[in-house]
Amino acid sequence: MKLNLNIQPLSSWMKVSSEPLIISGPCSAETEEQLLATAHLVKNTGKVSVLRAGIWKPRTRPGEFEGIGSIGLQWLKRAKEETGLPTAVEVATAKHVEEALAAGVDILWIGARSTVNPFTVQEIADALQGADVPVMVKNPINPDLALWIGALERINRAGITKLAAIHRGFSSFEKSAYRNEPMWDLAIHLKTLAPELPILNDPSHICGTRDLIPYISQQALDLDMQGLMIESHIDPSVAWTDAKQQVTPAALTEIVNNLTIRKADSSNPEFTDKLQGLRDSIDRIDDQILQKLGERMALVEKIGEYKRDNDVTILQVNRWEEILEKRTALASALKLEKDFTEKVLELIHGESIRKQTEIMNAKTELN
C-alpha cells in the first residue's frame, strides 16, 4: 500500500551544484571562526549544495557539549552570506523552529532522537504550520518503520510539501563495524511505499568512523538514494562532538570524486530486453519458492496435528539444531552467506512455530 504524501520533487525546491546532492558542514558549530572557515572550504570543493551545522545538540548524557545555541544561528547566517550556500540545522522543539526560521535557515531537519517521539514531532509540526520551508526527517533511533512514516506524515499534514527522509542507520545491541546498523531493507521499504519521497543517506552517523564513509556512501547511491549528508570539519581531530566521524573538506572532495554515479534506468533497448529476461527468470523462481513454502507449511500443519494428538511439545531443540547445521552447510556450498541463510531459516521456523501453536490452541479451546 502506497503512502499518501503530498510532496514536491526534490528538483523543484533544491538547486544541486553537482550530482548527487551533498549536504556538508561540521557536526557542531563550535566557534564563529571554525564555522566560517569550514563553510568556505566546503564551498570551495564545488561539491556541496547545502551547508549544515549542529546548533542545538541533544546528547546521550548530560555534561557533554550540547551545542552553542541560538548565537550559532547568526554565525550560520554570516556563512550563508559569504559563501552563498543555503543552510540546514536540526530542530527538536517549537522554539528551535521559530528561531531557525527567524534567522533565515533554509532547510530544517528532525533528528533520530526526535523522530522516535510522536509528541516531539507533533510539536515541531504545529510550529511549522504556515511555513514554506523544506524539512528532512531522519529515521528513528530504533528500527521502527512506522515511527519514521508517522513523523513524515505529521510534518506533511502541517502543510510541508518540500519533504525528504534521511537514512542514518539504527541502534543495535549487537556489536558491529558500524555506529548504527544501516538496515538497508527499512530504507528500501520506505522507498517502495513512497517512490516520490526523496531519501538521502547520512553515512557519518551510520559509520561512526570516517574510514567507512566512502563504502557506505557508494552503497547508498547504488540503492538510488538522492544525496548524502556528510559531516565535515576544518580539523576533525579537535572537534567538540563526533570527532571520529567527521572528515576534512579535502577528504570530502576525494570521497565525492571517487563515487560512481549510476543511472536509475537505461534507454538502451538491448539492455532493457536482457534485464527484463533476467527479471522474468527471477519471477518464475520466486513463484517456485512460494509454492514450495506452501507445501512445507502444509506438512508443518500435519506435524502440529500429530504432536497435538500425542501431547508432544511444539519446540524440538535438537531438530532445530539439525536443520540449521544441514541447511547452512548446503547454503555454503551454494555460495549463500551464512547470516542470510540463518535469517531465512529463522523466519521459516518462526512461522512453523506459529502455525503449530495455533493448532495446539485450537484443541485447548475445544476442550
Results as ranks from 00 to 15, higher is better:
115 T>N: 10
118 P>Y: 01
79 A>N: 04
113 R>F: 12
138 K>Y: 13
96 H>E: 01
86 P>V: 07
120 T>L: 14
102 A>F: 05
114 S>N: 15
101 L>A: 12
76 L>I: 11
125 A>Y: 01
131 A>Y: 13
115 T>C: 12
132 D>H: 05
110 I>Y: 01
101 L>K: 13
133 V>P: 01
87 T>D: 02
105 V>E: 01
133 V>L: 00
116 V>H: 11
121 V>C: 08
120 T>D: 10
90 E>A: 04
115 T>E: 08
123 E>R: 14
103 A>F: 06
83 T>H: 06
120 T>I: 15
94 A>T: 02
119 F>L: 08
97 V>Y: 04
129 Q>T: 14
96 H>Y: 00
99 E>C: 03
134 P>S: 06
95 K>G: 02
83 T>M: 07
87 T>I: 04
104 G>K: 02
128 L>G: 02
137 V>A: 09
137 V>D: 09
79 A>C: 04
138 K>M: 12
117 N>V: 14
79 A>F: 00
76 L>F: 08
78 R>I: 06
113 R>H: 09
132 D>G: 02
108 L>E: 11
113 R>W: 07
140 P>K: 08
127 A>K: 03
124 I>K: 05
138 K>T: 12
89 V>E: 02
138 K>N: 14
106 D>Y: 02
90 E>R: 06
83 T>K: 08
111 G>N: 13
95 K>V: 09
78 R>E: 13
135 V>C: 03
115 T>S: 14
80 K>N: 11
122 Q>G: 03
105 V>Y: 02
112 A>P: 03
111 G>L: 10
98 E>W: 01
102 A>Q: 14
98 E>Q: 13
114 S>W: 01
93 T>D: 11
78 R>K: 15
83 T>W: 06
115 T>K: 12
85 L>T: 11
91 V>P: 09
141 I>T: 08
83 T>N: 07
106 D>V: 00
78 R>D: 04
106 D>I: 00
116 V>E: 15
86 P>E: 10
135 V>M: 06
122 Q>D: 13
76 L>E: 11
75 W>V: 11
100 A>W: 05
83 T>P: 10
84 G>K: 04
140 P>L: 06
79 A>Y: 04
107 I>F: 14
125 A>R: 01
103 A>T: 10
130 G>H: 00
85 L>M: 09
111 G>C: 12
131 A>D: 07
122 Q>P: 00
94 A>D: 13
89 V>P: 03
103 A>R: 03
111 G>V: 13
102 A>T: 10
133 V>D: 02
136 M>L: 15
141 I>H: 06
